[in-house]
Design a protein around this nucleic acid. Structure first.
Length: 230
DNA sequence: ACCCAGGGTCATA
DNA sequence: TATGACCATGGG
């Protein structure tokens, strides 16, 4: 069934790309900030912003909440959408403070935490699940754009459209039973593989799993990606 | 001069 | 429910 093929996908990705070791961060809050700062941006730009925040000693709730908005925007400018993201960091920090910080939040259930995170403006399903998985160590499948596209093309989504984040997330979580550590690797491997372009005649073991994984053979925009103007 | 990168919100039909 | 506009930087 799908369970076997999902496991096979994981094993093949691991053989192809090796241990990824995500998410690089020294603390839960640094990881969470990274999840917000990396939204629709490459990790290099997000990391530069994190290093600025570190240099300014702003990698904690209270310090960040005290930092003036315009200075916060300047510090994270490299991550793009810096006005939105400065506001989002603030909203997240306010949430942390109001709920007693990570230590207190750890006692809550995964579904409870997810619902609470999704209530914050600027935290969508993918960002919430990344925080749940990497900061709270909950066994959650991050059904990001790469994962959805690869699974759909391998015929593993039971007809769910690639735009259906929640359906695909539940589907995978019900099919295979992994601990948080394995889900971390799975997410990182899918993103790493999804970014990789092999060329016209790829030597790609993942594609060999199925004839319908044609990611490396054409250019298809990720669902939800935006058109650029001007 | 393009295109892309580890999304999310809001207005509209 | 499902598109479309918008947010913005840095690297190839």
């Amino acid at each position: 069934m799908n369970r076997h093929r999902l496991q096979q996908l994981f094993d093949t990705l691991f053989d192809c790309h090796g241990q990824q070791g995500w998410w690089p961060a020294d603390s839960d809050i640094e990881m969470s900030f990274g999840a917000i700062l990396v939204q629709n941006t490459n990790w290099t730009n997000a990391r530069l912003a994190i290093e600025q925040l570190r240099k300014e000693s702003l990698l904690n709730q209270l310090a960040l909440l005290e930092c003036p908005q315009d200075r916060l925007e300047t510090h994270i400018r490299s991550s793009g959408y810096f006005r939105q993201k400065a506001a989002r960091l603030r909203i997240f920090c306010r949430w942390l403070v109001d709920h007693g910080g990570f230590e207190s939040l750890r006692r809550r259930s995964t579904s409870d935490l997810r619902e609470s995170l999704l209530g914050l403006s600027g935290i969508g399903p993918e960002t919430a699940d990344c925080i749940l998985l990497y900061a709270f160590e909950r066994p959650v499948f991050v059904a990001d754009g790469y994962a959805r596209r690869i699974l759909e093309r391998l015929g593993l989504t039971n007809g769910s459209k690639a735009s259906a984040y929640e359906k695909i997330r539940r589907l995978v979580e019900e099919e295979i039973r992994m601990d948080a550590g394995a889900f971390k690797e799975f997410h990182a491997l899918l993103v790493t593989h999804g970014k990789k372009v092999c060329g016209p005649k790829p030597d790609c073991k993942v594609c060999d799993l199925s004839g319908v994984c044609r990611f490396h053979h054409d250019k298809v925009r990720l669902a939800g990606a935006t058109e650029r103007r001007n």
